[in-house]
């Protein structure tokens, strides 16, 4: 079948990978989004498989960041001992698909795929994560909120690879939570999800980062509420400060999983519950 040209490259070092990358090359990581899109067909084109590159497999602690390599899987996150602000990410990881998908799928792949219902984006937003992007000529860090542009759209330039996710370290006491709403127990894509990371300093909220996923093309931070919560005492209820208007910027859609009205109103309830749970964590 001469009309279909195929090639496949699975390098064992990053430099070879970056050299191979040209705009028409498709990157393959855990494959959990790649293969389901190709049921009943063969694969045409050039593929760069990044799973044998040792430096992309690691989670390393640097002075400023936790650096999560591009091929770190959901299971790797669950198993790694990490500070409490990663609790939300761990909870999200445990609820991805089933264990098979957790063992194969990567966090980086999840954001590159940029599905509005993907679980990593809202969590990474509350972690203020930076996406490390590399090509053969440069390496740059892009804030997660600039990285995902829309439904299945990122700012990733052609011939660039996401090489890591950088999570800035937090010094204060933190608690973090994640709430996924789905129509069954396992193997389910979120109807909506809420992620929180809250820092406490001297008994008061030093910073609150809250986000909601699956209710807009890109997950959204709830900034007005975050500002209002700042300075709130740990002794008082926080969820009472949540107002329906806080979700004004969300633009959920109707689909087979749920309708828009439900998504939005459920998100509000979930946000209150998640904030409450996050606060409870400071007492446990």
């Amino acid at each position: 079948m001469g009309s279909i040209s195929k090639s496949y490259f699975r390098p064992d070092n990053l430099n070879s990978a970056l050299e191979f990358l040209t705009p028409e090359v498709k990157v393959l990581s855990g494959g959990t989004d790649f293969f389901p899109e190709r049921v009943g067909t063969d694969f045409a084109g050039k593929i760069l498989d990044i799973c044998s590159i040792p430096e992309l497999k690691e989670i390393v602690e640097t002075e400023k960041y936790w650096k999560i390599g591009a091929t770190v899987t959901w299971s790797d996150i669950i198993q790694k001992i990490l500070p409490s602000y990663f609790d939300g990410l761990k909870l999200a990881a445990r609820e991805i698909g089933g264990v098979q998908i957790q063992n194969q799928g990567t966090i980086a792949g999840n954001i590159c795929n940029a599905s509005p219902a993907a679980d990593a984006p809202p969590v990474l937003m509350t972690l203020d994560a930076m996406i490390e992007v590399s090509s053969s000529s440069e390496t740059k860090n892009i804030p997660i909120s600039d990285f995902i542009l829309g439904n299945r759209k990122t700012c990733l330039d052609p011939a660039h690879l996401v090489t890591a996710i950088l999570v800035p370290k937090l010094k204060n006491r933190t608690a973090s939570h994640f709430f996924k709403l789905g129509a069954r127990r396992y193997l389910v894509i979120s109807i909506a999800m809420v992620s929180t990371v809250i820092e406490i300093d001297q008994g008061k909220i030093a910073s609150a980062r809250l986000s909601i996923g699956a209710c807009s093309p890109v997950a959204k931070r709830i900034s007005d509420l975050e500002k209002r919560l700042q300075g709130s005492s740990i002794e008082n209820s926080w969820e009472e400060q949540v107002l329906p208007d806080d979700l004004a910027e969300l633009s959920p859609i109707d689909d087979i999983r749920a309708d828009a009205v439900y998504r939005k109103e459920a998100a509000l309830i979930m946000l209150k519950r998640t904030i409450k749970e996050t606060r409870m964590k400071f007492f446990s």
């Binding site: 855990g30 959990t32 498989d49 194969q104």
Partner: peptide, 10 residues
């Protein structure tokens, strides 16, 4: 445990 349908032979 992994799904062998989501993995290439390589």
């Amino acid at each position: 445990q992994i799904c062998s349908c989501l993995t290439s032979i390589s």
